[in-house]
Design a protein around this nucleic acid. Structure first.
Length: 174
DNA sequence: GCCAACGTTGGC
DNA sequence: GCCAACGTTGGC
């Protein structure tokens, strides 16, 4: 299937501005710390995704994310975990400044300005879902059983999502 | 390079 | 609060 056909079949964009195939992501956040509503209430509806201290998750942001990629904003470690809304990648990667700040919880004594260890991207509000899609909802659909989120023991806070999974979940939320 | 100990994640 | 999973650390 060509990208054009894919674009016609899927009811959301599959190419970014630079004509590269878009990628889709799921990013976890504890709503007590930073929720989807918090993102929307930021001045530019944008937030640097700081505090990631896992190499795999860092590599996704540093090496694989492109401006315009779409994100399922996931609420974790809360009463009802699930997908609260849609966000997008809104910057290229740059060093997470909290690694340099001794007063920050995310301070990393091994990082230097010359050789930063942790990178992030900015994340911006994209759109609301009509309804919250709980983890329980996601588990009910066999179409999503292969999602990395569902795999036992997956603790990664940033996960790739396939276009098919992404579309399916958008439908659940609308 | 191995691996035990330890810490964190996150659903339940 | 429990605990499975698993990444990281550090001694050797």
């Amino acid at each position: 299937m060509t990208l054009r056909q894919k674009n016609m079949k899927l009811d959301f964009p599959t190419k970014s501005v630079n004509n590269k195939a878009m990628k889709y992501w799921l990013m976890k956040s504890e709503p007590d710390v930073f929720s989807f509503e918090d993102l929307k209430s930021r001045p530019k509806k944008t937030e640097p995704w700081n505090g990631v201290r896992n190499y795999q998750a860092r590599n996704f942001m540093r090496d694989e994310m492109k401006v315009g990629d779409l994100i399922l904003f996931y609420h974790s470690s809360c009463d009802v975990p699930g997908i609260a809304g849609v966000a997008k990648v809104s910057s290229t990667p740059y060093p997470d400044t909290t690694q340099f700040d001794p007063k920050s919880d995310y301070f990393d004594p091994k990082a230097t300005q010359e050789i930063p260890r942790w990178f992030l991207v900015d994340v911006s509000f994209e759109k609301d879902l009509k309804k919250f899609v709980s983890l329980e909802d996601l588990k009910r659909h066999s179409a999503l059983s292969q999602m990395r989120l569902m795999q036992k023991g997956n603790r990664l806070s940033i996960l790739p999502v396939t276009p098919e999974e992404f579309r399916f979940i958008l439908k659940l939320g609308n």
